[in-house]
């Protein structure tokens, strides 16, 4: 068979159709990622820049042994973990409460909770910097009840609050979706068999929305751990997270290989945390269902 007939063969059709997108994704995703992986092993000289031919593990040993980077990775992951926990504690009950409302409130309020997703994260960070500043509304309210001005802006508090605000929709959406599959008849059956509302919630509703909570947690954790604009604007110059450190290495220190090594470490660490969490919870979940 000649090349022309092979290309015109029916089997080639899906490749023709997805070809343009495949070219874009190869040139702008696969190739750059490979280049960055290579770059992270390139030697770097502050005077002359990147040495293309020389390879070293120096940047990775730097990231793994320097306590400065330990502090930053540790801070990034505990903040992401805390944000995930708070999003579960707020997002899951909120989705449940919304799903029990009648229309039109149910649709309107769901939209209010989810729509901020479409507003630029810079705008939301700026809103929180106004609310949490020394003369902001939150401190004003705290002073009314007798608590002195609390320093929140440029501390972990502001970063966590704003990240919860940004991530909450990502938790509400999967929980809401799994609640839609819940048959209200089962819940009513439990209640009519004298189960308390709490038992019904724990034994009937919770097991069924657990997959939603799990996938929401994975998204929230991944996005929070790599967030850039929120720690950049609300953490100030001193409170660095991994993404803001990478930005500094690239645009201020100009040490691209080190920046690439940090960014790829974040990508891999993120994947490891997410995959092991997935394993852990799925294993438990299977056991619980017998």
């Amino acid at each position: 068979m000649s090349l022309a007939t092979t290309l015109l063969h029916k089997k080639a059709a899906p490749w023709w159709l997805s070809g343009p997108a495949l070219v874009l994704f190869t040139v702008l995703l696969l190739v750059p990622l490979a280049l960055t992986a290579v770059l992270s092993f390139n030697a770097f000289d502050p005077a002359t820049g990147v040495k293309a031919g020389e390879f070293t593990l120096e940047h990775y040993t730097h990231v793994f042994t320097d306590s400065y980077y330990h502090t930053i990775f540790w801070r990034t992951f505990w903040i992401a973990g805390l944000v995930t926990l708070i999003c579960v504690l707020i997002g899951a009950p909120e989705a449940y409460i919304l799903s029990r409302m009648g229309n039109p409130w149910r649709s309107i309020l769901l939209l209010v909770v989810l729509a901020p997703l479409l507003v630029s994260v810079v705008v939301r960070a700026f809103g929180w910097s106004m609310l949490l500043g020394p003369e902001g509304l939150v401190n004003g309210a705290l002073q009314l009840i007798g608590i002195g001005p609390v320093k929140m802006l440029y501390t972990e508090i502001a970063v966590v609050i704003a990240l919860v605000h940004v991530m909450l929709p990502f938790m509400v959406i999967p929980v809401w979706t799994s609640l839609q599959k819940l048959d209200p008849g089962v819940e009513n059956a439990a209640l009519s068999l004298q189960a308390t509302p709490f038992t019904t919630l724990r034994r009937i509703v919770l097991p069924q929305v657990l997959p939603g909570i799990l996938s929401g947690s994975l998204i929230v954790f991944g996005l929070a751990a790599s967030s850039f604009a929120i720690p950049g604007l609300l953490g100030g110059r001193r409170l660095k997270m991994v993404a803001t450190v990478v930005y500094d290495e690239y645009l201020h220190e100009l040490n691209w290989p080190l920046g690439a090594a940090i960014a790829l470490t974040l990508l891999v660490a993120n994947l490891v945390v997410m995959l092991s969490y997935n394993r852990l919870v799925e294993g438990r979940y299977k056991k619980a269902l017998g």
Binding site: P14, L29, P32, L33, T36, A225, F228, Y247, L267
Partner: peptide, 26 residues
């Protein structure tokens, strides 16, 4: 087919920070 689907949806999972760094290099 599965590979293409995964590849085309992957920018949702890969941190934009990593994409920015990678594209800057390219």
């Amino acid at each position: 087919r599965g590979f293409l689907n995964g590849l085309f949806l992957s920018p949702l999972i890969i941190p934009h920070l990593v994409l920015g760094v990678a594209l800057l290099r390219l």
